[in-house]
């Protein structure tokens, strides 16, 4: 037998092996791969759109997308900002939905609890899967955005022109892109934690997806109603536009900071509900 003395007495498998199995499972799930592929198309589509409509003179017009023209380093930032509206939350919510509700639907949650993977360890393992998807999704958008921005759009003499009219060198531009990527992961973790929490309450992954995306849309509507101003600090979507701040010079940190704090509170809440529910959930 392959059992060792540790294996003969321990009551749960080593965490590293659990995490490895979870990551392999997440990355082999066709849904994950499809969403990641779609995300890669976002910066590509912007780049091709900018390249075919013309050079910097096409930069006139509304929206941040116009900023990309002749300013390739802006592409990853703009693509992340656009994807954060729907596609990135979709990727993370789908991972959260499959993590627990999906496992319950296929009957595999039972197997995990019987193995047994401890109920709290299960939350750790599932969170790791969602974090992986969030990081990969952001990486795909940022890296494809950088490549497309450099190759298809071309830089402004190798620099990034900020919204404030200053120019940043390559090093600082990459730093800014890295910062917005990390910040975006933070926002997505908030979405993922909420998705996990909802995932513990149902056996239907689509319910999770509908709740999370519907919730984001409702948040968007609520934040557009002036008389509900007082809700703004509570809504996760309030901070979603702060990513644009990395294109300003000097970079204002309050928007990025407060939205990160808000996202952290969502993460803590989501994980609390998840752990609390998983502790007693039937499977």
């Amino acid at each position: 037998m392959t059992t060792s003395t540790a294996a003969a007495t321990r009551t749960t498998a080593p965490l590293g092996r659990l995490l490895g199995a979870e990551l392999r499972w997440v990355l082999r799930r066709p849904r994950t791969l499809v969403v990641l592929g779609l995300l890669g198309l976002v910066p590509l589509a912007i780049a091709i759109g900018i390249a075919t409509t013309g050079g910097p003179s096409a930069g006139r017009g509304p929206g941040l997308v116009a900023q990309v023209a002749g300013n390739g380093f802006v592409l990853p930032v703009v693509a992340l900002g656009l994807s954060l509206a729907l596609l990135l939350p979709l990727a993370v919510a789908s991972a959260g939905a499959d993590a627990i509700a999906g496992e319950a639907a296929t009957g595999t949650l039972r197997g995990l609890l019987l193995a047994p993977v401890g109920r709290l360890r299960l939350v750790v393992m599932k969170s790791a899967g969602v974090v992986t998807v969030a990081v990969l999704a952001v990486l795909v958008v940022a890296v494809v955005g950088m490549v497309a921005g450099t190759v298809v759009v071309g830089g402004a003499q190798g620099t990034l022109v900020t919204l404030s009219g200053t120019t940043l060198g390559v090093g600082e531009a990459l730093g800014r892109i890295g910062l917005v990527a990390v910040w975006t992961v933070g926002q997505l973790l908030a979405v993922g934690a909420v998705a996990l929490a909802i995932s513990t309450l149902t056996e239907h992954p689509l319910v999770v997806l509908a709740c999370v995306l519907g919730g984001l849309i409702v948040f968007g509507v609520l934040s557009a109603i002036p008389s509900l101003d007082w809700l703004q600090p509570v809504l996760l979507t309030t901070g979603f536009s702060a990513g644009t701040d990395v294109l300003r010079d000097p970079m204002p940190l309050d928007g990025l900071g407060s939205s990160t704090v808000r996202a952290l509170v969502y993460v803590v809440l989501g994980l609390a509900v998840t752990a609390w529910r998983m502790r007693r959930r039937d499977a």
Binding site: V261, R262, V265, Y266, V268, L269
Partner: peptide, 16 residues
């Protein structure tokens, strides 16, 4: 659940 959510709303408000 309501308790956790309410606590969360307060926490978000206080933090932000």
């Amino acid at each position: 659940l309501a308790g956790i959510v309410a606590a969360g709303a307060v926490a978000v408000g206080v933090a932000v």
